[in-house]
Nucleic acid binder design. Structure first.
Lengths: 353, 353
DNA sequence: CTGTTAGCGCCTTCAC
DNA sequence: GTGAAGGCGCTAACAG
């Protein structure tokens, strides 16, 4: 450090590359008349330096408009203060709640959240994990518990805490905050049977990579087998339609065409169920008289429809909050005894059944 | 580099801090029998090295399971390959579309997206910009054009491209991809007047920091003043209610209590308008016979309701896509001639008017 | 097309 | 409570 006391003219070395004339910690240190070390300490833990030193440093930070460079900090400390979050799609408001919960807890603690979406494609998940790993996040949050082998291996190799969520598995990669989609659908079927419905049909969008939807279908099938042994469960799915209400309308039409005897439709999502309920009005189908309808997710609309939509409520924001708390504890070095948290679900019975 | 040829035992220097036994570029270089520089080049531009060298490096990467450390790359190259995105709330699906569009363009180019949400609080926006700046993003994307003075100053000082969006201003901080909320509401009012409605009431959630909502209200008021000079425009707002359908129901009740003469309600959002339309069924209010209703945003539900909801469609995904393209061009060093892009809006007339 | 050199800005370690 | 030294892992600049 050939510090010649020059202020604006920095080292004339031809190797100097810094494009920006960015203020560095050294500038602050010079302005405050202390070493960079003291500035560094003051920034990370203000109580670790003397009160007047702190005041001088704070003043220096203000007057130089210093903004700390986290990349340098990360490199030196081996902590990135970031968490990578991987979700199937941002546009599903139900995952948005989870991310909101996650950020609400992490941002105040100084962590920032990287967001990536897979569009339900396993290969995209793998490549996201791969590229996110390069940022050396201090934790991973990921929706789902089914990944490619390579993804799982990559996650384990990072050495940082990983929370899987929105599903359930006996063998999580690391931490787990979720619930059983399978159990939830069983609960729905039990309810319908209890209410006297006998000819149930499952309807949903089944993207190849959407394992939550598959678990729901499986739950439906298993419960159906228990209640109606020998009968083939009725299932109507589309693979590539977007998750919008219009798809629910389309599915309703398919159900009526393929299984006209159906007296209750179990939709894999409130979005689909809502579309169907709204369409029933125009089609002269009385809900639940002619047809019972159930959804999944307890979206905002579920309670506003007439009749109200019977559905499964998921504590989706809480999933984010609890995941963040687990990550925080582990990132701060504490050990976590309960590696798996079941946030459960709640069947909300409304007018549609 | 006192390279002693040892494999697992790294430098014994007591100053060595690396907690992780992470594979570095040097390990790859050693395995491939080249310099780190060549590895670096191969990773960034595979065509810049010889084909057999490339093959050896790729093999070495695979066998060492090397994952590049972006923090080091960032520090050395002064490019973080990240974009910071700041939105009011993740839970509003309409912004989610924008973020999806943004990521869809940026991720394939190697950029990662940091997401932060302000909950419509100006002070949170400022602190987000401040903390994001420490990550030295290569670009900023931000929803809204009204910021605190300090936020604007911070953004300008970063020296990287900034896209403001979802609104319009003659003096953007840098780049702008948006539309006029004001003009959109004028269009709505014009349409209602044309249809014969004369006693219009505006209803919405007015969070103090939601300038888009304010612009919509202003548009309503200005159009109202033009059509009905001298009359006081009817406005019903709540300040702190959540943006959910139930709030729309609540607003509808307020409108009917405070302005029973109303023959058309102009809602600030489809979410509110949808809640109101659904509630009208139960209240025996015929739409549009007794009451016309308009929304904003063209949410999924708008087209599924009966009657369909007349609303303003915003190309919200496109806002994200175009913003990303502008950012990319600037981040890649190109100059941008049109710094402001008006994506416009479209009035969708449906049954509710 | 490949290697050498030096440094990006900060933090850990050690010393006082 | 504060400072000095050195390195985190990578890439720009330059040379060959």
């Amino acid at each position: 450090m050939s510090d010649e006391g020059q202020l604006s003219v920095r080292k004339a070395d031809s190797r100097r590359r810094s494009a920006t004339q960015a203020v560095t910690m050294a500038d602050v240190a010079r302005a405050a008349g202390v070493s960079t070390q003291t500035v560094s300490r003051a920034l990370r833990d203000p109580r670790s330096v003397g009160p007047d030193t702190l005041a001088r440093i704070e003043e220096a930070v203000r007057e130089t408009r210093y903004v700390q460079n986290f990349a340098a900090s990360h490199l030196a400390s081996n902590r990135s203060m970031t968490v990578a979050a991987i979700i199937p799609t941002i546009s599903a408001s139900i995952f948005a709640e989870t991310i909101q919960g996650l950020s609400d807890v992490l941002l105040p603690e100084g962590y920032q959240v990287f967001l990536g979406h897979t569009d339900y494609v396993a290969a995209r998940e793998e490549s996201l994990v791969r590229s996110f790993s390069g940022r050396r996040p201090d934790g991973f949050f990921i929706i789902g518990t089914r990944h490619t082998q390579e993804t799982t291996a990559l996650l384990k190799r990072t050495g940082v805490p990983v929370v899987e969520s929105w599903s359930w598995t006996p063998r999580p990669v690391d931490l787990l905050v979720g619930f059983s989609n399978h159990a939830a659908l069983i609960r729905v079927v039990d309810h319908l049977v209890e209410r006297g419905y006998r000819r149930l049909t499952f309807a949903g969008v089944m993207k190849p990579g959407d394992h939550r939807a598959k678990e729901r279908l499986k739950g439906f099938q298993d419960a159906h087998a228990r209640h109606f042994p020998g009968e083939t469960p009725r299932v109507v799915t589309v693979a590539s339609s977007p998750m919008v209400m219009a798809t629910g309308v389309e599915l309703l039409a398919l159900v009526r065409a393929q299984h006209p005897e159906t007296d209750a439709v179990v939709f894999a999502s409130d979005v689909l169920a809502s579309g169907a309920i709204l369409a029933c009005g125009g089609l002269g189908i009385s809900v639940p008289g002619d047809l019972a309808i159930t959804g999944f997710g307890n979206y905002d609309i579920a309670g506003q429809l007439t009749p109200g939509l019977t559905t499964v409520a998921i504590a989706s924001k809480r999933i984010g909050v609890e995941s963040a708390r687990l990550l925080l504890r582990r990132m701060q070095g504490a050990t976590v005894d309960d590696r798996a948290l079941d946030v459960g679900f709640e069947l909300l019975v409304r007018g549609s059944t």
